[in-house]
């Protein structure tokens, strides 16, 4: 259960401001795709447009096509709520629900959609998701405790468990390690490697070593100048991007001469 995403000629606006211009790429199924680029280049905005999260911000809209599994995400008949059930998201800062226990946090996606399930079934989902997020052994004795009581890295893995508990096709990660210490970051990166066999993963990161370590494909976003829209400079296999990029500005960015 994983799916590829085809993006063509995507423009993203905030009100009248064009934030991201003319992006086209194909994100392969069961692979990790990383987006890198300087701050404000629109990579997070682009990521959020892949599960229609950007439209939570008032005034945001999109032109162009995002095709998942043969369906266009921006077709008028498509319900954004349904899209998000298939394309999950993990955020920059861990955000477990403060009113819920660890157990309830994992089940939040199912429970909030008022899915009825038996206790055994629910227990099963919780264990499977927490194992999937490499968190089970650490929290199995305190599932009833508040999710906010975990460390930052554990909270982030809890959020990943919560995202995979609803069995999405795709997992979007918006700088998932930027608020974490190096040890927690390593744990999340290991996890991304394991999740790759089941999910299509798209990750935005500021850390180029991280992109090199975890991803199969890499997209480099940039903007021509401040106030100009961001655009996709290069999209290639990670090994190529980091060794022999097509575009000189990609090489400049990666070698640290800029940004």
């Amino acid at each position: 259960m994983a799916t590829s995403i085809d993006i063509s000629d995507l423009n993203i606006y905030y009100g009248d401001f064009l934030a991201v211009e003319g992006v086209g790429m194909t994100i392969r199924a069961r692979s990790v795709t990383a987006f890198i680029g300087p701050s404000g280049c629109g990579k997070s905005t682009f990521l959020r447009s892949l599960n229609r999260m950007h439209e939570v911000i008032p005034g945001a809209r999109v032109e162009g096509k995002v095709v998942v599994d043969g369906q266009s995400l921006y077709d008028p008949s498509v319900d954004p709520v349904a899209v998000r059930r298939q394309i999950g998201m993990v955020f920059q800062r861990p955000n477990p629900f403060p009113t819920m226990s660890i157990y309830e946090n994992v089940l939040a996606g199912n429970r909030l959609n008022s899915k009825r399930m038996k206790k055994a079934e629910a227990d099963d989902i919780v264990e499977r998701s927490l194992r999937g997020a490499n968190l089970w052994t650490e929290v199995k004795d305190r599932l009833g405790k508040p999710g906010m009581g975990l460390s930052g890295g554990q909270q982030q893995r809890l959020c990943i468990a919560r995202a995979i508990a609803v069995e999405p096709q795709v997992l979007l990660m918006d700088e998932p390690c930027s608020a974490l210490d190096p040890i927690s970051t390593a744990a999340i990166e290991d996890l991304i490697h394991e999740l790759k066999s089941d999910y299509t993963i798209v990750i935005v990161t500021h850390n180029m070593q991280q992109a090199a370590r975890v991803s199969d494909d890499t997209g480099f976003f940039n903007l021509k100048a401040a106030g100009e829209p961001g655009h996709l400079v290069e999209f290639n296999a990670t090994s190529k991007v980091f060794s022999n990029p097509d575009d000189p500005s990609t090489e400049a960015y990666i070698s640290g001469r800029f940004g």
Partner: peptide, 12 residues
């Protein structure tokens, strides 16, 4: 962030 987390889980 909490609202976004919930929306991202496909919750209306």
């Amino acid at each position: 962030e909490l609202r976004e987390a919930s929306y991202a889980l496909g919750v209306p």
